[in-house]
Design a protein around this nucleic acid. Sequence first.
DNA 1: CCTACCGATCGGTAGG
DNA 2: CCTACCGATCGGTAGG
Lengths: 190, 190
Amino acid sequence: MLVKNRKEQIYSEATKLFRDKGYSATSMRDLAQCLGIEAASLYSHIRSKEEILQQICFRMADEFFSRLNTIDREASVSEQLRESMIIHVGVITQDTAASAVFFNEWRHLGEESLAQFIEMRNRYEQHYIDIFQIGMDSGELKVKDPKFAMLSALSFLNWTHNWFKPNRKMNSREVGELLAERFLHGIVNK
Amino acid sequence: MLVKNRKEQIYSEATKLFRDKGYSATSMRDLAQCLGIEAASLYSHIRSKEEILQQICFRMADEFFSRLNTIDREASVSEQLRESMIIHVGVITQDTAASAVFFNEWRHLGEESLAQFIEMRNRYEQHYIDIFQIGMDSGELKVKDPKFAMLSALSFLNWTHNWFKPNRKMNSREVGELLAERFLHGIVNK
DNA sequence: CCTACCGATCGGTAGG
DNA sequence: CCTACCGATCGGTAGG
């Protein structure tokens, strides 16, 4: 493990604090104390509290996006869905603290960043809507409303950061495969 | 619709503010302004900011619990699961704003309330764990880890408050039935 | 329900 | 990275 520079240390500690206490309830003095320095000293490394939140949120957004390109566009729609879900879980499990901040604290972004964030989220959600639209048209998937299907799929995955612990019984890919399989084929034996 | 008394008006406006801005970022002056009074005047109706959060969270918790008793204990395990999920969605859709606060802001409860809240949540989750345990033992459900199954089920339902709007295409029971059916039998046609 | 006000804390800056 | 400090705002109280 490389030694993090101060800026990365700040982001890392802030991520944990924002997850545990929320963005608004975390003060710059809390953060400084975690690092053993004075609050004022933080400002030689970062410009503002909000800049930290921006970094956390947009790094996560970039992760979610960049992995989408690895999906095989030739595969069946249910296989594309399965792989999308596994990838999505993979991003979450890679950094559950940053994921928690990403999902819970994005609304505290400033006006400009907030608009950009929502625009990115819409584009990401469209990836799923497209898959469900194709699956609905071909009859491969039981879908009436592609947007509703997208929301149910993502909500199914977006709780993962709350309980996933690495080095447990399941690794990240196994969790993703299990969740995707359950979403595709249900929980009832037949 | 009955006219709410001032106390209920305060809870109602606070619920919307806590949902939109979060508990910590909502000031008593914000809340007072919504009601057209001074911040100090709030304290003739309520004792503290935290008391408001407690009311919102524990009212929701009580709703979730009281509905559990309506479930038919003689039904098959998958039918008990289906009905539990429909009921759960029903509680969420009945007040999506209070649900959002319940799910996102409970961690800002004080030490004592927080412990009580977590204890209640654990008991509620146990209801689902029991169902999945029985379904696993009988082979009726594809479950390896009842706790993991419980988490996947609740996470599937607990996003509902973010998008459900009453008087739309689907009513509350239809949404619950659709989600339960998808969780039980999956999205892939066979 | 109001005016007046409390001590504490907030994010952030100046200057070294 | 520190000391010293800023104006703004916080939850809440006293007294009417």
